[in-house]
Amino acid sequence: MLGVMASVALTSACDSGGSADPSPSKPPSGMSSPSAISDGASGKAVLDHAFVGMEPLGSGSGRLQPHLGNTLPATPENVLSVTFAFTCTGKGKVVFAFTVNGRNVPTGARTTTCDGSIFQRSIEVSRTGLISYEAQVTGSESGSFAYSYYTEKAQLP
């Protein structure tokens, strides 16, 4: 097996798939400050900058809403794990739930604050199939969000 990173596009709907490091990370140095990220398109640019050179599997962006979600319809056959990345603004909090092929992915804390930081979760995939996330936004909904799915590990042919 060989680890291969690939980036995923952003969409305004949310569904899930994932498990892994539950802690958000700050944008890499040189990236826009949280106050400069004012819309979903800017959030997508933040993720694109943070995951340079990664092939996207899917992505989305939009205005914050009480409930968000999206489903990545299928992962390529050789993909062993996917990185889910999410960023948002507006100072609200987002709680995530992930599923792979309809099964909940048990993980620790899955909450992030909408301060422009990047939340990442690694999701193991045992076979090709659906990865979904659902998110509930609490507090301020005045901000925007962006997310992407990226290939994290792929098996060589």
Results as ranks from 00 to 15, higher is better:
residue 2 L to P: 10
residue 3 G to Q: 10
residue 4 V to L: 14
residue 4 V to M: 10
residue 4 V to A: 12
residue 10 L to I: 11
residue 11 T to A: 08
residue 12 S to F: 04
residue 13 A to H: 08
residue 15 D to F: 06
residue 16 S to R: 07
residue 16 S to K: 04
residue 19 S to R: 00
residue 20 A to Y: 11
residue 20 A to H: 10
residue 20 A to Q: 12
residue 23 S to V: 13
residue 23 S to C: 03
residue 24 P to N: 06
residue 25 S to P: 00
residue 26 K to R: 15
residue 27 P to T: 11
residue 29 S to F: 13
residue 37 I to W: 01
residue 40 G to N: 04
residue 41 A to T: 15
residue 42 S to K: 06
residue 43 G to F: 05
residue 43 G to H: 03
residue 44 K to T: 12
residue 45 A to V: 12
residue 46 V to K: 00
residue 46 V to N: 00
residue 46 V to I: 13
residue 47 L to V: 02
residue 47 L to W: 04
residue 47 L to N: 06
residue 50 A to S: 14
residue 51 F to K: 09
residue 52 V to K: 11
residue 52 V to I: 11
residue 52 V to A: 12
residue 52 V to E: 09
residue 53 G to A: 11
residue 55 E to C: 09
residue 55 E to Q: 15
residue 55 E to F: 12
residue 57 L to A: 08
residue 58 G to E: 01
residue 60 G to L: 01
residue 62 G to Y: 00
residue 64 L to H: 02
residue 65 Q to S: 13
residue 65 Q to P: 06
residue 65 Q to A: 15
residue 68 L to N: 02
residue 70 N to G: 14
residue 70 N to A: 13
residue 72 L to H: 07
residue 72 L to W: 02
residue 75 T to S: 09
residue 76 P to Y: 13
residue 76 P to W: 12
residue 76 P to Q: 14
residue 77 E to M: 11
residue 78 N to A: 14
residue 79 V to W: 01
residue 79 V to Y: 05
residue 79 V to D: 02
residue 81 S to P: 05
residue 82 V to N: 06
residue 82 V to L: 04
residue 84 F to M: 11
residue 84 F to G: 02
residue 86 F to K: 00
residue 88 C to T: 00
residue 89 T to V: 02
residue 90 G to C: 03
residue 90 G to P: 01
residue 90 G to W: 01
residue 90 G to K: 01
residue 92 G to H: 04
residue 92 G to I: 07
residue 92 G to A: 10
residue 93 K to I: 01
residue 93 K to C: 06
residue 95 V to T: 06
residue 96 F to G: 00
residue 98 F to P: 02
residue 99 T to R: 08
residue 101 N to K: 12
residue 101 N to H: 07
residue 102 G to P: 00
residue 103 R to N: 11
residue 104 N to E: 14
residue 105 V to Y: 02
residue 105 V to Q: 06
residue 106 P to G: 12
residue 107 T to G: 10
residue 107 T to A: 12
residue 109 A to Y: 09
residue 110 R to L: 09
residue 110 R to W: 02
residue 111 T to C: 03
residue 112 T to K: 02
residue 113 T to H: 05
residue 117 S to H: 08
residue 117 S to M: 01
residue 117 S to W: 04
residue 118 I to H: 01
residue 120 Q to F: 07
residue 120 Q to G: 01
residue 121 R to F: 08
residue 123 I to G: 05
residue 123 I to S: 09
residue 124 E to N: 14
residue 125 V to R: 04
residue 125 V to N: 06
residue 129 G to R: 00
residue 129 G to V: 03
residue 132 S to W: 02
residue 133 Y to Q: 04
residue 136 Q to W: 05
residue 136 Q to N: 13
residue 137 V to I: 11
residue 137 V to A: 07
residue 138 T to D: 12
residue 141 E to D: 01
residue 142 S to G: 11
residue 147 Y to I: 07
residue 149 Y to I: 05
residue 149 Y to R: 00
residue 151 T to N: 04
residue 152 E to C: 06
residue 153 K to Y: 14
residue 156 L to V: 15
residue 156 L to C: 12
residue 157 P to V: 15
